[in-house]
Structures are given as C-alpha cells and as structure tokens.
Design a protein around this nucleic acid. Structure first.
Ligand SMILES: O=c1ccn([C@H]2C[C@H](O)[C@@H](COP(=O)(O)OP(=O)(O)OP(=O)(O)O)O2)c(=O)[nH]1
Ligand SMILES: [Mg+2]
Ligand SMILES: [Mg+2]
Length: 400
DNA sequence: ACCCACTACA
DNA sequence: TGTA
DNA sequence: GGGT
C-alpha cells in the first residue's frame, strides 16, 4: 500500500560520500558509546543523559529487546499503539512507536513531564499520558482500551493470518465473538480459511530451541540439494527474542544460476519429505533476462523469491510459520538487513537513507537517487552501515 | 503544509 | 484493496 | 501524533 513515488524527475545532486554531512552529532572520540543530543530546538536542552542519542532516527542508537527502564510505561503505550493500528490510524500508531522506541533506549526511568517532553517523539499528547502514568502508575486510556470488548475481539480476529483491521472490523460488526463463528463466514478467502484452521498452532510462540530444531531440518534438506547454500536465520530470532511468532530465513547461493531456482527446489523437497503442509504466500520473481527491451530506463532488478509456509515441527507436530526468502548473492546483505528488523528499525533506516543520504534502501539493494537511479553494490551489513555513515548496531540492539 | 519505508501476492 |  |  504505497502510492509508489515514481520518478522524482527533478533535484538530486549527488549525496553519499558521507562523513558528517548531516546534523546529528556524536562527540568526536567514540571509544565507547558516547552519544549526545541532537541539533535543532536544542540550545536549551543539554541536560538529557549524554548516553542517550536524542534523535528521530531510531536506527542511530541501540535499542534493547527488554528496556532496562520505563518497562511498564512502554507496555501501556504499546496498548494504545496497537489500538490505533486496529483502528487503521497508521500515522498515529507510528507516533506512538517513535515514543516507545525512545523510551526503550532511554537510560533512566522518566521522572517528570518536563523530562519526557525533551525526548524527540514525545509531544503534548504522549507527554500527558506519561504525566498521568507518573502519578497514577497507569494510563487511563490504555486501561479503557484493555477493558473494551471491541478491542479484545478485534485483537483476536486480527491475529488470524490473512485478516487485518478491515476484515476484523467486518466480523466484529457481524457480531462474531469467536474464531469458531468466523469459520462459518461465507466470504472467507482461501488464505483466511487456512489462517483460521491453523489459528491455534500459529498462536503458539516458538522457543529458541523450537527454532533450532526447525533450522536443523532446513539445513539438512537445503544442503542436500546444494551443499554450499548459505542459510541465515533472521527476524526476531536473530535479534535475540526468546519467543518467536515465526521463523524467518534468508537462503542464498554463490552461483546466481543456482540461486535462481532455489526456492522451487527447496519447497518441492520440503513437500516431498512431508515437512511443509501449506504455502501461505509464494512469490516467484523470475530473473529479468530482457531488460534492454523494456522501457528505456534501466530499472528492473530481480526481486527476492519468497515462500511463507506452514511447516510441521516433528517433535511437537505443531504447525509452525516459516518464512523462506531466497536472495541472489548480490542482494544477500540487503536481504539479511531488511529481514532482521525490527520493523521500526527498517523504517527508520530507510527514512534516514532517503532524507539524509539521498539514497533508497530496500531488501533488494541500496541505490543512489541520482537521475538514472544507480545501484551501490554492497557485500555485507557492515558495509551498508558504513556507506550510510551510521554506527554499527548489533542485531540484538535493533529492537526499536 | 508536508512527511511519515517499501514491495508483492490474492 | 487488503494483507503480509 | 509528532517533527520539520
Ligand atoms: O512490515 C514489515 C514487516 C516485517 N519487516 C521485516 C522486519 C522484520 O523483523 C522481518 C520479519 O518479520 P516478522 O513479521 O516475522 O517479524 P519479527 O520481527 O520476526 O517478529 P516475530 O517474532 O513476530 O516473527 O521482516 C518489515 O521490514 N516490514
Ligand atoms: Mg519473524
Ligand atoms: Mg515473518
């Protein structure tokens, strides 16, 4: 659901060739992690802890999985954020996410409204929630949301694979109260029916040990096809999450020809061996062999093959969601970066690339936005951070 | 007043 | 358009 | 809902 920016036709002087062109400043010698505040409006607020980089770009600072401080405040704000998502208020939800990410990275418990308001991303509304939290130890709006039957129902329905807020709302308006009732709906799509059937299994989170079991199977099967495949677990598992909703894996192969048909080969073998029960989503992006014939401009790079599938875990017989992503070797590092997340980390990184470096970052590559858009070839995650001129962030610290 | 990530399937 |  |  993107309007597709199309060609920006104008502007664009070369940018890239980083060094500090942009504004956020970091104290010169960065032996450890000495972050300082950020520009603008500043002057006045030099008093935030210098270990906290006060920026609107979450990708510039480390964010742990579990915050050391402000944990219950964060949980309450996440309730409001989710409620906004269920109401289709994306931008509003994004604002809550900015504030939440900042609080997760902040090195103290917030002690006052004034302190909270110094944080970029905390404006008057969220500031007031925090003020209430400081005196009552809760946020009234979050409590109301949690108590509301509508929220509880929409929350459950929207967890079904193939069901977003629109469908959840339709079902709620039809008076459905349970997953069982939804299954009788006459307008289910194929995917929604599957999602409802697999609902109980998909709700069960996977421990790291469960994930390792699945990775072992994938490793054996994939390497039995091509022994020099590279298999990289990404997603929440790579960020250190203890309990994961699914397993995301990027697979690549040094020979592009082989990578080209890898997904089909893997999926067929997983089907034959009985591991793979359902394909929920299958994207086969054939290589572009005819680029010269196409409309003058040299767009059309090949996209990543993907298969989101339901996979039987042998030890428990539980159906697990596994997302397989096949990347040509040339796109391996951007794919790993893009699929490691978190979602907010990716959004901030891409926003930073565009706004501060005049570049476009996707899971398929890094591009310089000059008139004919030029690909900047990269071979590692670190190289991407370097080119963007931002400090390396460990996967475990990308939990914005 | 404008921006807020980006791309693909069903 | 809805969902991932 | 917040930053620019
Ligand atoms: O809208 C999205 C959704 C996902 N991703 C990337 C980042 C994310 O980390 C990764 C895997 O997505 P998934 O939905 O599996 O999230 P997760 O971070 O792995 O968490 P979970 O434990 O729920 O699987 O894909 C995005 O960039 N944008
Ligand atoms: Mg995941
Ligand atoms: Mg996933």
């Amino acid at each position: 659901m993107k309007p597709e920016p199309l060609s920006e036709t104008f502007v664009q002087e070369e940018s890239y060739q980083t060094e500090s062109t942009s504004k956020d400043r970091r104290t010169s010698s960065d032996s450890e992690h000495n972050f300082t505040d950020d520009e603008q409006t500043s002057d006045i607020e030099f008093d935030l802890d210098p270990r906290f980089l006060n920026t609107k770009y979450e990708c510039l600072r480390p964010t742990p999985l579990k915050p050391k401080y402000n944990q219950s405040l964060v949980e309450l704000l996440e309730v409001i954020e989710h409620s906004r998502e269920l109401n289709g208020e994306e931008r509003n939800a994004l604002s809550y996410r900015h504030a939440i990410a900042a609080l997760k990275a902040y090195p103290h418990n917030i002690k006052s409204y004034a302190e909270a308001r110094k944080i970029i991303g905390v404006g008057p509304k969220i500031g007031n929630h925090i003020k209430e939290f400081l005196t009552t130890d809760t946020i009234p709006e979050a409590e109301e949301i949690l108590a509301s039957e509508k929220y509880q129902t929409l929350d459950i329905f929207s967890r079904v694979y193939g069901v977003g807020y629109k469908t959840a709302l339709k079902w709620y308006r039809k008076g459905y109260k349970s997953i069982r009732e939804c299954m009788r709906d006459p307008y289910l799509t194929h995917i929604q029916r599957l999602g409802l059937e697999l609902f109980n299994d998909f709700q069960k989170k996977m421990s790291r040990q469960d994930i390792q079991e699945l990775l072992g199977i994938l490793d054996t099967i994939i390497k039995s096809i091509y022994s020099d495949c590279i298999i990289t677990p990404v997603g929440g598992y790579r960020r250190g999450k203890e309990f994961n909703g699914d397993l995301d894996v990027v697979v690549s192969h040094p020979q592009e020809e082989i990578a080209n048909n890898l997904l089909k080969d893997i999926v067929e073998k997983l089907m034959d061996t009985g591991h793979l029960k359902h394909k929920l989503f299958y994207a086969r992006n054939k290589k572009d062999t005819s680029s010269e014939l196409l409309s003058s401009h040299r767009n059309v790079m090949d996209k990543l093959d993907k298969c989101f599938c339901a996979f039987i875990q042998p030890s428990t017989q539980i159906c697990r969601q596994v997302d397989l992503i096949i990347a040509p070797y040339s796109q391996y590092s951007t794919a790993v970066l893009g699929w490691t997340g978190s979602k907010q980390f990716e959004r901030s990184l891409r926003n930073y690339a565009k706004k501060e470096r005049n570049m476009t970052l996707t899971s398929h590559g890094l591009f310089l936005n000059v008139i004919p858009k030029r690909q900047v070839h990269v071979t590692s995650e670190r190289e991407i951070f370097n080119i963007l001129g931002i400090p390396w962030v460990e996967p475990e610290m990308r939990n914005c």
